[in-house]
Write a protein that binds this DNA or RNA. Structure first.
Lengths: 181, 181
DNA sequence: CACCCCATGTAATGAGTTACATGATTTT
DNA sequence: AAAATCATGTAACTCATTACATGGGGTG
C-alpha cells in the first residue's frame, strides 16, 4: 500500500471528495491561494499541483478524463477512485507522529475532518492529544535520564535546553488541542 | 554575498572554528552522530557532510589540502577562510526569522554561541525573544482583523484555530527563551 | 580470520521551487 | 485594445535521503 509523503496530495484528495469526487486542476488551485483557508496552512503552486495529480493517477488514487465544456479551454477532470477515497479516510483518521507535523499535516487533517464529520474531528483531536501526552512523558523520561548520565556538564546543559524547548512546544500543543476539542 | 540555506553548513563552519579552523570529514562526522549534542538537533549522513564541504569550498568559506599522516588513509583537511569565519559570525549573531526555525536553526546557533561567547549567547536569546514578541503582536492583529472580516463562519473558525496554534507555539517559545536567558 | 574503525566519496532517487510557455476567451 | 481569467503544463535548478563502493589497518 503506497503512502503519500506530502500533505498536499491528501489535501487534493480531500478537496475532490468534497466535490462529489471530481474536479480539475485550475479549480483545485484556487483552494491553495492566499485568501483560501487551506492556503493559510499549505501553499501549492500550479506546477506542483499538476505534478501531484499526475503522480496520484499513476498510484491509482485518481483517474482522469478530458472534457471540452463549450467554448472554454479543455479540462482534465480528475475523479477519486475507491483506493483514493480509502487512502484519504485512513489518513484522516490517523494522528500525526511527530511534533513538527502539527503545524501543517495535522491542521490539514483537522480542516477536512471538521467539514466531513464533526465526530471524526473530535476523535482525531482526542487521539492527537493522547499522542502528545505520550511524547511529553518520553521527554520527561529523557530529562531524568540526562541528569543521571555522565556526560560533561556543557553538553548536558545544551541537551537539557533542547529537551526543555520540546517539552514547552509539546505542552503548548496539548493545551491548544484541549481548547479546540 | 552568498548565504547557506541549510544550518548544516553553519554547524560545520562552527565546528571548524572550534578546532583552530581546521578538520577533516570523518572527524566532523562524529559530531552529527547519535550521542553527540549537535546530533540531538541535526543529523547529517556522511554523504551530505562531504557534499557540504565541497560546496563550501566552491563558495570560498573553506579551503582544503590533502594530508597523509603516516600509515593511515589520507585525509582531506578543511580550513576556515576569512570569508567563512565572517559568514559564521554574521549568522551566529542573527536571530531566526520564522517560528519553525527555532527547533533547528536557532538551537544550532545557541549551541555555538554559548561555547564561543556567553555574552553573544545572551544577546542572541534576547534578540530572538524580541523577534518572537513581534510575531506574537502580528498574530494578535490578524486575529482581530479576522473577527471583523466577512468570511463565512466555517472558514473563519478554521483560520482562528490556525492562529491560535501559532500563538500558542510562539508564546511557548517566548517563555522558553525567557527561561534560558 | 572476522570484524570494526578510519576515510572518502558516488549513484540513484525523489521532492520542492521558480519561472516560463501556450493559447483561448471574457471583461474593462 | 489591453488586461485579466481560464486552463495546463515543462524546464531548470536546488536540496535531501539512502544506499552502496572502496580499501587499508588494527583488534579480538
Amino acid at each position: 500500500m503506497a503512502r503519500a509523503t506530502s500533505p498536499a496530495e491528501y489535501a487534493i484528495l480531500g478537496l475532490l471528495a468534497e466535490h462529489d469526487g471530481a474536479g480539475h486542476g485550475y479549480d483545485l488551485a484556487r483552494n491553495f491561494g492566499d485568501d483560501a483557508p487551506i492556503g493559510e496552512v499549505l501553499r501549492l503552486e500550479p506546477g506542483m499541483l499538476y505534478h501531484h495529480l499526475k503522480k496520484m493517477e499513476r498510484t491509482g488514487w485518481v483517474e482522469s478524463t478530458l472534457e471540452q465544456p463549450g467554448p472554454r479551454p479543455p479540462r482534465q477532470v480528475y475523479r477519486l477512485t475507491e483506493a483514493g477515497l480509502h487512502e484519504l479516510e485512513r489518513w484522516l483518521a490517523a494522528p500525526v507522529t511527530h511534533t513538527r507535523e502539527i503545524r501543517l499535516d495535522f491542521l490539514v487533517k483537522l480542516y477536512f475532518a471538521r467539514r466531513s464529520d464533526p465526530t471524526l474531528a473530535a476523535r482525531l483531536v482526542r487521539d492527537q492529544r493522547d499522542a502528545c501526552r505520550t511524547w511529553e512523558a518520553r521527554l520527561l523520561e529523557r530529562m531524568t535520564a540526562l541528569e543521571a548520565s555522565d556526560e560533561p556538564e556543557t553538553d548536558r546543559a545544551f541537551t537539557r535546553t533542547v529537551l526543555e524547548l520540546r517539552l514547552a512546544q509539546t505542552r503548548a500543543a496539548i493545551d491548544w488541542l484541549d481548547g479546540i476539542g
